[in-house]
Design a protein around this nucleic acid. Structure first.
Lengths: 151, 151
DNA sequence: TTGCGTGCAAAGGTTTTGCATGGCA
DNA sequence: TGCCATGCAAAACCTTTGCACGCAA
């Protein structure tokens, strides 16, 4: 029942940007800036309209990143692949790690048996630092004079 | 180093409302409506200003509830008691369970060793159904004609 | 040619800010 | 009396909407 879609330069760029940003969440502003960088000016309304369409189609997800307090959009590679496990999110690079391993079952069982809590994976996120970013933070810690980004 | 605070009727009501709503998140609008119900008219700016102060003081937490897409505020009983463990949040009653048990260490170790991920408890939330609400949901499922609340 | 996509302008909602006034301690 | 808190109005932001036009298929 999907209506016919037309291809336009702006849409191609936007979708491309979202795809390549798979492990990083982007804001509507980021998209606008990206288009600017590519010398393509697209009206904000157009961006929002397209983003909403993509959301409706399930191609992307929209939610608020509470760390930055902004609405972010995230490309969904395969929605069905993201069920049954929770996500680890790096607070520094916004990268996402899918906790797709046997430990998921251990978590689920523990919560069920010890806390009578039925885990729902959707929306459940654990924050922290990924391997790469931790190393960078450690480097930064060694250089006291360096400008460090703080919360 | 906290500056002197003056007590006013509006502030007392707002804080009281937040305290009594401990397991339920409230929006700025809810607060405004609550004050109206108590025949106290407080300007929106005042509400926001006070909420931001409470956030800075760590008395409440501010974040966006992605289910309703609105900014919500939540009373923090004792911030220091909430470090070192993650939270389980019931999607139905918004109640919070503190995962303060030995399993926390297991989680931390697994993420560290298998995923090279340094867990940061702050903000990490697992969603699901608490014992009480699951039973209610099960009851509702047995009564097909009953009005059921859905997502 | 059809109707989707776009730009523009305006509106809507939420939150912040400057300034003068009011009120607690 | 000294500040903090408040009200008011305006602004800042983000997002949506209506309308007319452009353009892909």
């Amino acid at each position: 029942m999907d209506r016919r879609k037309y291809h336009t330069k702006g849409r191609a760029l936007i979708l491309g940007f979202l795809e390549q940003s798979q492990s990083v969440t982007v804001t509507a502003k980021d998209i606008w800036a990206f288009l600017q960088d590519h010398d393509v000016t697209v009206n904000r309304s157009t961006i929002y309209r397209y983003l909403n369409q993509l959301c409706d189609d399930g191609a992307i997800m929209k939610y608020t990143d509470n760390d930055i307090g902004k609405t972010v959009y995230e490309y969904v590679k395969d929605k069905h692949d993201c069920q049954g496990h929770i996500h680890l999110k790096c607070v520094r690079c916004n990268g996402i790690i899918h906790l797709e391993c046997g430990f998921m079952e251990e978590i689920r069982e523990h919560l069920e048996e010890s806390h009578h809590f039925s885990l729902q994976c959707e929306g459940s996120v654990l924050y922290g630092l990924c391997d790469h970013c931790r190393k960078i933070e450690e480097q930064a810690a060694k250089m006291p004079n360096e400008e460090r980004h703080s919360v």
